[in-house]
Amino acid sequence: MLVVDDLHASIGGTEILHGLSLEIGDGEIHAVMGPNGSGKSTLAHVLAGRDPYQVTAGRVLYDGADLLAMTPEERAAAGVFLGFQHPVEIPGVPTMYFLRTALNALRRARHHEELGPVEFLALVDAKRRLVDMDRSLLDRAVNDGFSGGERKRNEILQMLVLEPRLAVLDETDSGLDIDALRVVAAGVRSLRAPHRSAVVITHHRRLLDHLVPDQVHVLAGGRIVRSGGADLAAELEAHGYAGVHEPGAEPHPVSTATAR
């Protein structure tokens, strides 16, 4: 589904990603872990098409298409979703309206009928129960006055409503208590399907215990320095990142992607 090939990206003239390569097959969940400043969020933003990040070399293929040539909204229409580490407040725009505008924009782009208010309400009501989100939050402006946990639930709710083919979750688990973490994990699991994939960027192993990723990658110094199975997360927790990026360490070869 996704092939990241020798990606170099910078912001403000500083290169953050130095030749990152990654392949994700259909139906897979990949975790990307790594210390602060390793380029995890840069990877997420580059995949979503955030403006100030500049790709200086490399390519990203999404279902064989050049993802980097697409606008953010085109990427969303193609099924890419970014769960924000710091979800943005939008005063004056009710969450419900935001969600419906987004969903209908995607449906228009895919030549589907727009959903009317009644159908939409029913859809959202079912999804918000999954993330245990209070109905009243949906009438409030997007993330305006939301707690950290409420914002993250809102991200997951958006993901469930928009049903992306590739979800990129940027530290969605940071700052969450155990209950909220379970909700996030349940949300991601509920989308699991042979045609959907996810990249879960995280600092901690806890979310991965709930998700059981197909692969875990260690990102350090702007490249993937090691890849392994779910047990790599446990190993990292026990020994830290120190052991995986000693000088001269070669990145482990990325395991073969599932054929599309």
């Binding site: 909204e73 943005v88 987004a102």
Partner: peptide, 25 residues
């Protein structure tokens, strides 16, 4: 906020309009 909306599939023009409406609301 503009990028947030666009990342959800809303075109740049419509995203701007949503933000302006939110401001006026």
């Amino acid at each position: 906020a503009l990028f947030y909306l666009r990342s959800r599939g809303v075109s740049e023009g419509e995203a701007r309009a949503v933000l302006v409406s939110g401001f006026a609301r």
